[in-house]
């Protein structure tokens, strides 16, 4: 709760810029515009509160910034299982959460799901190096399976609560290990198998505090960082080991 309140301090109107379209008026109001990752960050709750007109189903799609991952596969060498070949996967979102008031497959036909990117295993992924179609397919399947198992891709039809067919609150739980960048939130109103209202918004996740500074230093000035940090480690070890020893002897 305290974290949520702090987030509110960054004041924010999530979902301000892009007006909703379509016949169904849809208002979605404040969650936060920024999530800051500090050293003790262990994930956070995001809330979206909104209103719609009349009974309908809702889908909220949360899409993380694209992420480059390396997928590796173990192979058998004699009796040993060792690291084998690997590929890079690019342009797939780091996180894909689909929240809905009912299982998405039951409220939207596959074509519509495809159109709005509402299939967990349907996001386009670029595999490097280019492989034969069936080989690439294996890697893609593994990619989606791992993402789902690690909890970065999932569908949840219990997180949105609707009150009196008008007001809704969505509780979205973000994991602790978040990719830094811009997250898109798309809210869709669904009636009889069609999307009739849509609202777009976004929020940013960034590193804050000492973690960010150390991180930037380690990457932008890696040699200077290495030198200073090693010196710091030596001084710390010296202070902890040698000084108490001198005092007692």
């Amino acid at each position: 709760m305290a974290r949520w309140l702090r987030c509110l301090l960054f004041v924010s109107i999530w979902m301000l810029p892009l007006p909703s379209w379509a016949d169904e008026p849809l208002v979605v109001a404040p969650g936060t515009s920024e999530v800051r990752i500090t050293t003790d960050f262990a994930g956070t709750e995001l809330k979206a509160i909104g209103s719609m007109r009349g009974p309908a189903d809702l889908i909220i799609k949360l899409v993380g910034p694209p992420q480059e991952v390396t997928l590796s596969r173990e192979t058998k060498l004699g009796p040993f299982w060792i690291g084998g070949d690997s590929v890079k996967m690019e342009s797939a979102p780091s996180l894909l959460f689909l929240y809905a008031t009912a299982p998405i497959a039951s409220i939207l036909p596959p074509a519509e799901q495809q159109k709005y990117g509402l299939l967990l295993e349907g996001v386009p992924v670029r595999v490097e190096p280019h492989l034969q179609a069936h080989a690439a397919d294996d890697w893609q399947k593994a990619f989606f399976r791992l993402k789902e198992r690690q909890g970065y891709y999932h569908e949840d039809d219990t997180a949105i609560k609707v009150f009196g067919n008008r007001l809704f609150i969505a509780d979205m739980r973000l994991p602790g290990d978040l990719q830094v960048g811009t997250y898109a939130v798309e809210t869709l109103v669904v009636k009889s198998g069609k999307v009739v209202g849509r609202n777009l918004g976004e929020f940013k996740v960034r590193l804050a505090g000492i973690e960010r500074r150390v991180w930037n230093a380690a990457h932008d000035h890696s040699w200077l960082f290495g030198g200073l940090f090693t010196l710091l480690a030596m001084l710390l070890g010296f202070a902890l080991n040698a000084i108490p020893y001198r005092r007692t002897h």
Binding site: E68, V69, T70, R73, F80, W81, A142, L146
Partner: peptide
């Protein structure tokens, strides 16, 4: 660890920037 067949032969690492 080297001898036991892994539960999933695939593994994923996130590239740092």
């Amino acid at each position: 660890t080297l001898l036991i067949p892994p539960g999933d032969i695939y593994d994923m690492t996130v590239e740092v920037r």
